[in-house]
């Protein structure tokens, strides 16, 4: 079977009942979606299936033949961050970063579907996503900001910073 992963057609050889999360991580080596619970409870594994957010840990890959799957890797790169990604950095919405892939994916789907900066609506849309670090406020603020703004200033504002911003992997 086949899926289109982040715009590229990929052959899948895992058995059809394999959860999409394991196919992504173990067969295709695309690891942004995280295994926080593998039981639908945390949201860290969320990816877009035909543009809609879905728990990859609960999705048997056999149901996806021909579908378009988008992971965090498909939403923006360190050189070309999306508005949601920029807002998450600017508003410190990613602390340990483990929930972040699911949060950014779900937030992107929310805004793509016409979601506004209404904070209650944002909370409702992301109500299934657990973050243990931030207390959620920064995440909601970031999404609200991304709803109204397309660019964020990510530069360091101290004159001679002694902190180097790392972009890209390690």
């Amino acid at each position: 079977m086949n899926i289109t992963l982040n715009g590229v057609s990929r052959q899948i050889s895992s058995p059809p009942l394999t959860p999409l999360l394991r196919v992504l991580r173990n067969e295709l080596n695309v690891v942004s979606a995280k295994a926080g619970c593998e039981a639908g409870g945390c949201g860290a594994c969320t990816v877009l299936v035909d543009g809609r957010p879905q728990r990859s840990c609960l999705t048997a890959v056999g149901s996806l033949n021909g579908a378009a799957v988008t992971t965090l890797e498909g939403l923006g790169t360190s050189e070309n961050l999306s508005a949601v990604q920029q807002a998450f950095v600017h508003h410190y919405a990613a602390q340990c970063g483990f929930c972040t892939p699911g949060m950014v994916v779900a937030a992107t789907a929310y805004l793509d579907a016409g979601g506004s900066d209404d904070k209650e609506a944002i909370q409702e849309a992301l109500g299934g996503h657990v973050c243990r670090c931030t207390g959620y406020l920064k995440i909601v603020n970031a999404i609200a900001a991304a709803a109204t703004q397309s660019e964020f200033d990510l530069t360091i504002t101290a004159e001679e910073p002694n902190v180097v911003v790392k972009t890209g992997g390690r």
């Binding site: 009942l17 959860p19 593998e38 728990r55 840990c57 999705t59 048997a60 056999g62």
Partner: peptide
């Protein structure tokens, strides 16, 4: 699959035949 897939992941359900 919101119930069955996680039961399989945890090894609590081990089907021999499945109908999707």
């Amino acid at each position: 699959g919101t119930i069955v897939v996680q039961l399989m992941t945890q090894g609590w359900l081990r089907p021999t035949r499945a109908l999707m």
